[in-house]
């Protein structure tokens, strides 16, 4: 049986993956493609917040704010510089653009390395060292903060997607972009909103979770990959999909490490991906359309 302490850590990792997957999810919903640059936003935000707190001595809250704002700016830049010139609605020719997003991911990774250094940095500590005993496990204040912020982010995302005009537009455009254009929906504005959200979610994930075990510039590709996997496992039918997928992915990875050692992480992730893609490619939450 997995000890309670490991389960606490699984929940933390799952929240991290969930936030990253949610960042990918909002762009997927509004524009129909995977934004593989989200890992770059997270790494940039994490490194920026870590740099400004541990090297420049700013308070943790200011560091995190800088990180999130930086990630949002990068996401908006991606939309303006990469997506806008390359996006062809309904042409089913999105491959070059998505490849460009992958190249953007690498560019962001390298920019973060050049700006903030290539060494691992400790993340900003927003809360003290306090901890609560929970049975046989210790829940640190940091863990509670991570879970709380994730819950808050998903709550707000849920309200946005299902209760606002913009959120309804987001779902409509993702469903059928050419039709949305014909109907005169504000496609560009909704896409910009979704990129802003993606930047904020990924930036939050990167800067808040950096305090767990530090952050280093070359994790961007892994972040993107795990976000993609979490999104595929969870499915895109509901806002809860990314979170569920993130938790499942974290469980699989942590269980593999717990039972078989550190190298098993990659084997287990591969096995999980092959199994999920083969048997449940639409994810756990499916869209059911009645006709």
């Amino acid at each position: 049986m997995i000890p309670l302490q490991v389960i606490v850590s699984i929940i933390e990792t799952g929240c991290f993956f969930g936030l990253l997957a949610a960042a990918m999810f909002v762009v997927r919903e509004s524009s129909g493609f995977f934004n593989f640059a989200v890992g770059g936003y997270a790494v940039f935000a994490g490194l920026a917040s870590a740099y400004f707190t541990s090297v420049r001595g700013l308070p943790a809250a200011a560091g995190i704010a800088i990180g999130v704002v930086g990630a949002v700016a990068l996401a908006l830049l991606t939309e303006v510089l990469v997506v806008r010139p390359m996006w062809k609605p309904g042409a089913n020719e999105e491959l070059p653009m998505v490849i460009a997003l992958v190249a953007t991911l690498f560019a962001l990774e390298q920019i973060s390395g050049v700006l903030f250094g290539r060494a691992a940095l400790p993340g900003p500590q927003l809360v003290g060292d306090g901890a609560v005993r929970l049975g046989s496990a210790t829940v640190t204040a940091q863990a509670a903060l991570e879970v709380g912020l994730t819950a808050l982010a998903f709550g707000l995302l849920l309200l946005f997607v299902y209760r606002t005009r913009m959120g309804r537009g987001l779902r409509a455009i993702g469903e059928n972009t050419p039709a949305a254009i014909v109907l005169g929906l504000p496609v560009r504005a909704v896409r910009i909103a979704s990129f802003t959200l993606a930047g904020a979610l990924a930036g939050l994930a990167g800067s808040v979770f950096a305090a767990r075990s530090g952050i280093i510039f070359d994790s961007a590709m892994d972040y993107t990959l795990f976000a993609f996997l979490a999104l595929v496992i969870g499915g895109t039918a509901s806002v809860w999909g990314p979170l569920a997928g993130g938790l499942i992915l974290a469980t699989i990875q942590s269980a593999a490490i717990f039972y078989f050692g550190a190298a098993a992480l990659h084997y287990a992730t591969l096995a999980a991906a092959v199994l999920f893609f083969a048997f449940r490619p639409q994810g756990i939450f499916m869209k059911r359309v009645r006709v």
Binding site: L225, L229, H266
Partner: peptide, 27 residues
């Protein structure tokens, strides 16, 4: 193993294979 996959799903699985292979080389 991946014959039903295409596009980025295929890319993701083969990339994971790359990482697993890299881990195996060291392991």
């Amino acid at each position: 193993a991946t014959r039903r996959l295409n596009g980025f799903y295929l890319a993701a699985v083969t990339l994971l294979f790359s990482e697993a292979f890299q881990a195996w080389l060291i392991d």
